[in-house]
Write a protein that binds this DNA or RNA. Structure first.
Length: 805
RNA sequence: GCCGCCAUGGCGGAAUGGCAGACGCGCCUGACUCAAAAUCAGGUGGGGGCAACCUCGUGCCGGUUCAAGUCCGGCUGGCGGCACCA
């Protein structure tokens, strides 16, 4: 057959679309299967090869599922709110809506040209008001349940983008969008109380099928630690108690006897409270200013050099020894974790040790071991200098005993801390979901009425964010001024918008019922389709999108809006495609491969086969143009199979190979070992070619197995050989286990563990027969000559090993 | 620093503890061609041998085993995540 991909690819794409075979059917009696891939942000440059690889895996499984008789939901949409469209809008003075719609159309066109079997009747876009209406609705539910709060805190602020960023968006002290340095700024912001769900998010991981690497990253990000909160009495210069106690958090309360000083974060409010009795306030202010200037990055880089200032005039009392100890401020203590104050145990914490050495503070060893004159001892050992804890050798026991004591004395109590912080949930930008809250001078913060949703984004002329950190919406009086839904008095709208991650936190639910205008999705449809059976996406979304969406979904479960606690039954990820030079693809390096160039030059089928064949799916691998051509060559040979499909009798050897291949390809697809599945098909075609002629049945089996990978070519072959209906939804081949087993097996023969030859043995041959056959072999017998056989290991079908002396 | 993953030909990579290098790329030889490309056929880890074969070989050192790329212990190198988290 002539393989003209330019002609057949658009042809079948149109035929499939016309026939509606990719449409998911609600409540269909067939078993359901919901495959999901991360919907893209529709950037102006179009699809990246990474998108192709990310979608191709679930695409192949979805196509196989349809052939296996499943009712498949494989949807696609667009995560279309976000900064790049807005920045482009500022530059070109075009409305972000116009740019976004143009980009969506471009992306969709590209996806169709690759032949992805998405159900386009369920297409969604997060920036469409019939979608974000429900994003706002869920937000109001969160608000209603006390999971939304406003707080003035130090926030991660990007001076370039002029937005407040979540921790997740400012990892490493760099803005996730523009990569400039993030600074700390005190600001009033909205938070979602994700920390309240920390335990549920941890617990949920036990019931889902995620790779360990993903689970571990989520666990590390949540960062649960158990310890104790302990109160230290503050005192004046002479050790007389003053005012409040100061609370600290520690994981080693059993080292309390070794506490020789306290450190509080530079921003800690206790300082301002006792300002009058602090005699070196100037120095404190100076140090604070220094710290504020440092970026988070600088602050964490200077790990070795401990800086700080001793607070003069304010001291504390060690609650267990009764000794007066000094108080310092230092930026190695963070306001954002624990209580912003620590008890320092220099003998057993390297940071406290470094600080004590630099500031000449006493070091008291309370755990035996190490050499305290050189460094802190952080290992285990017998407790010493520790009163009632002396002699304890087990960390667990000494902590438990101390906790008991703290409780008895009312000094402290057991506690839990998380590294994960609450989710800063607002941006001072235009192109996002307006936050549906109203500030009323009388009633405080009031929710927009549900029947007024969606709270639409008003049109503006100027998308530039304000220099005062205000959203462009703040400049629109008609938007800002409103009446309070509670008291009817004049009020002002919140002008911040939601962060990029809002829309993607629940989109998989909307796909179950995308056109519903009464609810975010019909509960019966949710119960039919959810959970997502297989979700694939990038490793880079594991600490953000995955955590956020699990949080929203778990919340909706808790308020009985969805029926499953976890949204994704199974999650996988793909490895990066590197440039041909082995470097990460980037415009500046000029090593970017445009997938549409490959479609033009070799066809979509070649592109699809290549991205899955190039390496292990989860591994990063460089692009190779030569290997792409190799995949095209393979498909050319597949097209040529029609010429030799003329045998009228099945060759038993070939039949066995066909059945083995059905088994291999079927199993490998399930394990996402696409590279070996394709390799098995290449091997089979090599056998076909050698045989010179094959039956039509062999050809049909072959194109069915290849169909999920190269659907256009195989559909065309199917039509040309007179197949009925679409190959795409024909039955997946079955294999006969008997026929996958060879009657005669060639196995290796070892003498003392070294391979000395191989022999053909019948499958059911006994040990004695195997030994007899092997001993007749010329080469093997040479190695056995004059030796005594001590032991024979025979593993049928695998190996025969003679142990000789 | 902590946690995790990985290391196999010239390259991408195969290999439930059982004949290392499947499959593809590249390269070499041959066929076709005036020639080249494309295509087809054959070969292709290193060393030795006319050959049958022999020998070395999965980052390094050791161990378990009849048998180790695979399991265990210790290194070295690379990747990813977290990171002054008390």
């Amino acid at each position: 057959m002539k393989y003209n991909f330019k002609e057949i690819e658009p042809k079948w794409q149109a035929e499939w679309e016309k026939s509606g075979i990719f449409k998911a059917v609600d409540f269909d009696p067939r078993p359901k299967w919901y495959g999901l891939v991360e919907f893209p942000y529709p950037s102006g440059v179009g699809m990246h090869v990474g998108h192709i690889k990310a979608y191709s895996s679930v695409e192949v499984i979805a196509r196989k599922r349809r052939m296996q008789g499943y009712n498949v939901l494989f949807p696609m949409g667009f995560d279309s709110f976000g900064l790049p469209a807005e920045n482009y809008a500022i530059k070109t003075n075009t409305h972000p809506h116009i740019i976004t719609e143009k980009n969506i159309a471009h992306f969709k066109d590209q996806m169709e040209k690759v032949g992805f079997s998405f159900d386009w009747s369920r297409e969604i876009a997060t920036s469409h008001k019939d979608y974000y209406k429900w994003t706002q609705w869920i937000f109001l539910k969160l608000f209603e349940h006390g999971l939304v709060f406003r707080a003035k805190t130090l926030v991660n602020y990007c001076p370039h983008c002029k937005v407040v960023l979540s921790n997740e968006d400012s990892q490493g002290g760099k803005c996730d969008i523009c990569h400039s340095d993030v600074i700390q700024l005190p600001k009033d912001v909205w938070y979602l109380r994700i920390t309240q769900y920390a335990d549920k998010l941890l617990e949920g991981l036990e019931h889902v099928d995620y790779p360990d690497s993903i689970k571990q990253q989520q666990v590390a990000w949540i960062g649960k630690s158990t310890g104790a909160f302990v109160n230290f009495q503050l005192a004046d210069q002479d050790g007389h108690a003053v005012g409040d106690k100061m609370e600290i958090y520690t994981t080693r309360c059993d080292t309390l006897y070794g506490v020789t000083f306290m450190v509080v974060a530079p921003e800690h409010p206790v300082l301002d409270k006792y300002k009058d009795q602090i005699s070196n306030w100037d120095k404190i202010t100076e140090y604070r200013a220094e710290c504020a200037k440092k970026t988070e990055f600088e602050r964490t880089q200077l790990v070795k050099d401990k800086t700080g200032v001793k607070v003069e005039g304010l001291t504390a009392i060690n609650p267990i020894t009764g000794k007066q100890i000094p108080v310092f401020i230092a930026d190695y203590v963070m306001m954002g974790y624990g209580t912003g104050a620590i008890m320092a145990v220099p003998a057993h914490d390297q940071r406290d040790y470094d600080f004590a050495k630099a500031f000449g503070v006493e070091i008291v060893q309370v755990i035996k071991g190490g050499d305290i004159s050189k460094e802190a001892y952080t290992g285990d050992g017998e407790m010493i200098n520790s009163g009632f804890l002396n002699g304890f050798t087990n960390k667990k026991d000494s902590i438990a005993r101390m906790l008991e004591y703290l409780k008895e004395q009312g000094i402290g109590h057991k506690g839990v801390q998380y590294k994960m912080k609450d989710w800063a949930f607002n941006r001072q930008r235009y192109w996002g979901e307006p936050i549906p809250l109203i500030h009323c001078p009388k009633c405080g913060t009031v929710a927009v009425l549900e029947n007024e949703l969606p709270l639409e984004l008003p049109d503006v002329d100027n998308f530039e964010p304000g220099t005062d950190g205000q959203s462009p919406l703040a400049k629109i009086d008609s938007f800002v001024n409103c009446t309070c839904p509670k008291c009817g008095g004049p009020a002002k709208r919140e002008t911040d918008t939601m962060p990029q991650w809002a829309g993607s936190s629940w989109y998989f639910l909307r796909f179950c019922d995308p056109h519903n205008d009464k609810a975010f999705a019909d509960r019966r449809k949710l119960d039919y389709w959810m959970p997502v059976d297989h979700y694939n996406g990038g490793m880079e979304h594991v600490t953000r999108h995955l955590l956020y969406s699990r949080f929203w979904h778990r919340f909706l479960y808790d308020i009985n809006e969805v029926g499953t606690p976890e949204p994704y039954a199974k999650r996988t990820y793909q490895g990066l495609i590197l440039g041909p030079d082995g470097e990460k693809m980037s415009k500046s390096k000029g090593n970017v491969i445009d997938p549409m160039d490959i479609v033009d030059q070799y066809g979509a089928d070649t592109l699809r086969v290549y991205v899955l064949f190039m390496s292990d799916y989860t591994a990063a691998a460089p692009w190779s143009d030569e290997s792409v051509r190799g995949c095209k060559r393979f498909l050319d040979r597949v097209a040529g199979l029609t010429e030799i499909a003329n045998a009228d009798k099945e060759d038993p050897k070939l039949e066995s190979s066909v059945h083995k291949t059905i088994k291999k390809v079927s199993e490998d697809i399930e394990k996402m070992k696409f590279n070996t599945a394709i390799a098995a098909l290449m091997s089979l075609i090599n056998e076909f070619t050698k045989a010179g002629s094959i039956t039509k049945e062999d050809l049909v089996t072959f194109i069915k197995l290849l169909s999920p990978f190269a659907p256009h070519l195989t559909e065309e072959i199917w039509q040309q050989i007179g197949g009925e209906g679409f190959l795409t939804v024909s039955a997946w081949p079955e294999f006969d286990e008997e026929k996958t087993k060879d009657a005669v097996l060639n196995i290796g023969v070892q003498v003392n563990g070294k391979v000395r030859g191989n022999v053909d043995l019948p499958r059911d041959c006994t040990r004695d027969e195997a030994v007899e056959t092997a001993e007749k072999d010329e080469v093997i017998s040479r190695f056995l000559e004059g030796k005594t056989i001590v032991k024979v290991i025979y593993v049928p079908g695998k190996i025969l090993n003679f142990v000789v002396k």
